[in-house]
């Protein structure tokens, strides 16, 4: 894969991240009434040493994350990570309250984050589907709240299972109205990349 991922293809993956998550943050803005904006997506070939560079949060800080399996023509894993303070912003906006700590993190709070992930990933996949004609299905998100490195490594190890390399399309989104930053990762199965590039004609 290393040899086939030239600049053009990296750009294409970045653009897919842009288009896909553009729809997703619009959906989040509609849901919350708050304007969210995207940072430029990054496309990274991951080996274990580059893992700490993903999602710039300190390794032992508390994060809230979800991961959903995506099946179909471009299978992979879609994951969201929110630093604890950013998750609190979402909770405050969407249910007008927030847990004071991990021990108060009940099912309501979890379902809020799962729903945000659902809507955003759903929109992301829809945008990609419209662009490529791919059929894509997502499974319901699974939830975790724990130290950043543990959450991230659990997601990546599972995505890495059965593959030699891992590709990550990382997009950060934020809002000027609040102290908020969210991270989206799409971790496609690298074996299916050719199919994507074929459809895009590159």
């Amino acid at each position: 894969m290393t040899t086939t991922l030239n600049d053009l293809r990296t750009d294409a993956l970045r653009e897919i991240g842009n288009i896909g998550l553009g729809g997703a943050v619009t959906a989040l803005s509609d849901l919350t009434g708050v304007l969210f904006t995207l940072e430029a997506p990054q496309v990274m070939q991951i080996d274990t040493s580059t893992l700490p560079q993903l999602c710039c949060v300190s390794p032992e800080s508390l994060v809230v994350g979800t991961v959903s399996r995506v099946n179909g023509d471009w299978p992979g894993e879609g994951a969201f990570l929110f630093p604890w303070q950013s998750a609190c912003v979402l909770w405050q906006i969407l249910v007008q309250m927030q847990p004071s700590g991990l021990e108060e993190l009940n099912e309501l709070y979890q379902s809020v984050i799962n729903e945000v992930s659902n809507i955003m990933l759903g929109n992301y996949l829809q945008a990609i589907s419209q662009m490529t004609g791919f059929t894509l299905h997502m499974e319901p998100p699974a939830f975790a709240a724990d130290m950043a490195m543990a959450v991230l490594s659990s997601i990546l190890v599972e995505a890495l299972y059965g593959q030699r390399e891992l590709l990550a399309i990382e997009t950060a989104f934020k809002t000027p109205e609040h102290e908020f930053k969210g991270y989206f990762l799409y971790l496609p199965e690298t074996g299916n990349l050719e199919k994507l590039f074929g459809v895009l004609g590159i």
């Binding site: 399996r69 499974e139 319901p140 699974a142 939830f143 724990d146 543990a150 959450v151 659990s154």
Partner: peptide, 11 residues
């Protein structure tokens, strides 16, 4: 960490 996965590899 992800307890409620529909499919899990139980790594």
């Amino acid at each position: 960490l992800f307890q409620n996965r529909s499919q899990t590899l139980r790594i």
